[in-house]
Design a protein around this nucleic acid. Structure first.
Lengths: 340, 340
DNA sequence: CGCCATGATGAAAACGTTTACATCCACTTG
DNA sequence: CAAGTGGATGTAAACGTTTTCATCATGGCG
């Protein structure tokens, strides 16, 4: 009884209102040239019939989907909820929907995802370790405006937005050096991750500039807590070559902290520990974690805003790489090194 | 110069290959009745031309978008990244895309979002404090299969999936009572939140069952850290009527912990503190937080799986409310109450 | 040799919109 | 009063696919 579930189309509305589909379309889209009475009647009927325009049909003719796609790597942790939130805020402001496509383990999967998005989105936000320029240009139609995030695109013709990982890491090392630390180990992130590479570059450059004698100590990591745990044990096992650990992200720093606790190493008295990202948890560890704040939501929001500009003013596309500063947050996990 | 950016359609492929569009469609979609040679030629041309089928056009005729919509409230914190991740995993498994629509502050906004999704999605996952049955049935076409999450739908004809908040809260109070706590305060969540109401109901029921004499002590909260902070101060200000605080989520528990530290109240020696959700941070607070684990990713995944069943076997729609158990996680924030 | 079955291909309709263009009508205006 | 003007409405094409149906060639079989 309840529902005549066959979807009601614009034709049904037209028939019931005794007008043409064109008039219905005009009334619904707020065009001027339709009598107030007709408009009212049409709107009434539409409401009564629960008419809802069919998105795909509309997209087909208007060439607009009102949707932007976000192609992201794995969706773990606070980072992505913040990122998506930022995107969502900016998208909503312009009446756009957000299509999320994630967890692309390989370049092929990423390529597939990109192609599947064709005709579903007006623009694309891409953050992928696999996304390089040839992959992109092969798999996305040149017509789709795209903003790349945290991706290595040397002077390509894609707009891009990066966190200034290099400067952040540099500043952190600078801070550690100023506090008197001299033997600073890096727990690096995955080698295929652009952020990770940039952070490492910052660390190495700062070391070279500020402690010309010191050899970099780099330990492998994978941006996970478990990886941080392993790295901390490796560092301890290596003997006490180190007075400060710089974990390339907070998740690994948390893992380090856990391992160091278990090993009976006190932070910061025995060993300083710092991270990168300033995830919410960083405030609540014991001791609270010195880290580099990345305003992730802002990253998402700015990327989306940039994309929206491309959409609205296709003539103004600037493909300049934009960079988002990050900021040192000093807490208690790297109190000054005590002599002895 | 670079790009003949006009999008290449199936017609272009047909023309270049010297066949009809029908054959191209057949070749691309793997229909059998097309000669291997023709197929090969068509695929070659398609690749060469970088042809990508237009999603909207395809959707229009196939009545399938290969997309499901997720209508969610505000996207804060770990909860949502986990939820989305779970959904994404299940969706990807079935080759579906995920369209995320969030931050609906009011019923009207939710309604608008629902209608905007019409014709863009094959099905819907809805979690919204504003989503009640009339709103839903008014704003989504009966044709769109829908699974409701953490929503109050008494015996409606929507499929639904809820976390067993009641049982979780009950179990937590039971645990506190077993540990000797008698004066247990609840920091409640927002009144318009279904989860919050259920948790409160569990608290009150457990209190009534297990400590018949005790009057419930309920303090207002809003599921944020700041709210927890305020509530803890209010509890302290009320004088020491309380030996255990049950925060209705972990974010508030973290806020409480912060405030209690500042007030010089030791947890758990002076006051026990427990939460709900088991966010990752809960392990790392000092002391680590006793809480109720909700497997959020699983919630998202199961909801999506359920929806997919609806999509694939429309005849089998069971609108039964399904419930997801949660589990007590005992850590150090509620050591047994010491006498005196 | 002629008929039919079969398998490959093409023509065209359909999906639900928007919009350019045509039509019609009621005015205004000379 | 005729002609023009302009506003409301309708007609039909277009968007890019998939799919039904028809067509056509091929080859097997009586």
């Amino acid at each position: 009884m309840s529902a005549r579930s066959a979807t009601v189309t614009i034709k049904d509305v037209a028939r019931h209102a005794g007008v043409s589909v064109a008039s219905v379309s005009r009334a619904l889209n707020g065009h001027e040239s339709v009598t107030p009475e007709t408009r009212a009647r049409i709107l009434d009927i539409a409401r009564e019939l629960r008419y809802m325009p069919h998105g795909a049909a509309r997209s087909l003719i208007t060439r607009r989907t009102q949707t932007v796609g976000a192609v992201l790597p794995d969706l773990y942790g606070e980072f992505f909820s913040e990122l998506i939130r930022g995107m969502d805020v900016a998208a909503r402001r312009s009446g756009l929907h957000l299509l999320v496509s994630s967890s692309h383990g390989s370049a092929d999967e990423t390529a597939l995802a990109l192609r599947a998005l064709q005709g579903r989105v007006d623009g694309l936000l891409v953050m992928s370790p696999h996304a390089d320029v040839p992959l992109l240009s092969d798999n996305l139609p040149s017509a789709v405006p795209t903003v790349l995030m945290n991706t290595q695109v040397a002077g390509s013709d894609y707009a891009s937005l990066n966190v200034d990982n290099f400067a952040g890491a540099y500043a952190m090392v600078q801070h550690l050096v100023a506090r008197g630390f001299r033997r600073i180990a890096l727990v690096a992130g995955p080698a295929d991750n652009f952020d990770a590479r940039e952070r490492r570059r910052g660390y190495e450059q700062a070391l070279a500039d500020l402690l010309p004698g010191a050899a970099p100590q780099v330990f492998d990591g994978d941006f996970t807590e478990a990886g941080g745990d392993r790295a901390a044990r490796a560092i301890e096992a290596a003997g006490r070559q180190t007075d400060a650990i710089f974990a390339a992200n907070d998740a690994m720093a948390v893992g380090c902290l856990f391992a160091l606790n278990e090993l009976g190493v006190r932070v910061p008295q025995d060993l300083a520990l710092v991270g990168f990202d300033d995830i919410p948890m960083a405030r609540y560890t014991t001791p609270p974690l010195t880290t580099v704040r990345v305003r992730i939501a802002e990253l998402g929001e700015r990327a989306m805003a940039r994309l929206i500009t491309c959409l609205e003013q296709p003539e103004h596309v600037d493909t300049q790489a934009e960079v988002l500063a990050c900021e040192l947050v000093v807490r208690q996990s790297c109190a000054p090194a005590e002599p002895g």
